[in-house]
Design a protein around this nucleic acid. Structure first.
Lengths: 229, 229
DNA sequence: ACCTGAACACCGTTCAAGT
DNA sequence: ACCTGAACACCGTTCAAGT
């Protein structure tokens, strides 16, 4: 305990401004939303000049990428906890994952928008962001693959089925967050998410009842598609 | 033909600046994206001072709402054309509607973002926007209801099933537009959209095979939810 | 090494003044 | 009635200068 962080009004040095900026940014985005998020305001709240953040982040987008990264870490954590406290059996586990995703979105709408919205033009140029977001999506692919091994989910490329599942819950989350659907009651949000995931699960189950369509079915290649997140 | 629009460099009067601003805005948003969309730039391209737009639109959001309205009109038109040139039988019609929705999104990504994104805080305060966007969603509800009458789609509240269907295609569209899924080949976009709608259709078909879950099933009320668009 | 202050080129919005 | 020009309070970003 000989060394301690310089506290109080340490002339101009900040103990760990990098970390402080991310935390201020997280609070600001939760309070003011993505549109009220300003690099100058972050600096103001952190008690430094508006130029100081540029010693730690290349530009506004880089700070936003750090914020998004924290978001994916939190989302991933919640999805992992679902796996821990739930029976990992296809229908219930699958539904719980979807519900958790939608709940995260409506509880942290601005954060959710930063994670998936257009503010970060190309997420792949931020390696740590790319890694953790990719890891989050991987949880879903694994859940699908496990269901396939248990014969509870139809055969086929796991990632393609996972993408359809992701689209379902992401769509519902987006419509709620963007106020396209005016639902605020948390219980009703959960009900909508359960309905959506259950309906999708029907589609995931068996290929036997499917209508055949010319070309481009689920079993086909689609090999070149890449998941950015 | 006695009266004609004042053309060329009419001193400062613009024939129909209101209309001109919307059209310039549409072009600008297609060229530069939603982030590069600036009221001052719109004015510049329209050849008027940066204060002139305020005689025709209350603020930036009001012009954005007009742009969004045009978008919904175009989307609605495309969905109507699907109904005209397709057999209106549940599986094929349903898939074609979903594919058209996703195609519109990837062909006009910035426009799509304005229509559904966070730029327009509350769309319901713009009556004409609200009307046309609501009308677009109504097409989907009607398609579901028709499927129910033909016994091709399970019974239940049409709007709740329509919401799940909307979420599916909206989610895929959003993931593509926001580059979360790196697919650029149009044929592959169509393939993904067909896969997603076909999987969803399985869930829409019959309630018979569904897993029963405690509470909050598809058949339950959910009555208070309102669709904003 | 890390931060500040002034500066630059932009915004959205308002408002008196022009025709 | 419709538009302009100057003004205000903001941005993001850069850069010489400070300690």
């Amino acid at each position: 305990m000989f060394k301690r962080a310089t506290k109080g009004r340490s002339s101009y040095h900040h103990g760990d401004l990098h970390r402080a900026l991310i935390e201020v940014a997280l609070r600001l985005i939760a309070e003011e939303g993505a549109s009220g998020f300003t690099l100058r305001e972050v600096a103001r709240r952190a008690g430094v000049s508006h130029a100081a953040p540029y010693r730690h982040f290349a530009d506004k987008m880089a700070l936003l990428a750090a914020v998004a990264e924290e978001g994916f870490r939190a989302l991933r954590q919640r999805m992992l906890e679902v796996g821990i406290r739930m029976p990992v059996e296809p229908p219930a586990h699958f539904r719980a994952l979807g519900v958790e995703y939608v709940r995260f979105a409506v509880e942290h709408p601005a954060h959710f928008r930063v994670m998936f919205g257009p503010d970060i033009i190309d997420p792949t140029i931020y390696p740590t962001l790319h890694e953790v977001s990719h890891g989050t999506f991987t949880l879903l692919i694994e859940a699908i693959a496990a269901g396939q091994q248990a014969q509870a989910i139809r055969p086929g490329e796991s990632w393609a089925l996972a993408l359809a599942a992701w689209a379902q819950v992401h769509g519902l989350a987006t419509l709620l967050v963007d106020h396209c659907v005016a639902v605020t009651d948390p219980a009703q949000v959960v009900a909508l998410a359960e309905q959506a995931t259950d309906m999708l699960y029907e589609g995931l189950r068996s290929e036997g009842t499917r209508h055949k369509v010319k070309g481009t079915g689920v079993g086909e290649p689609l090999a070149e598609a890449k998941i950015a997140y």
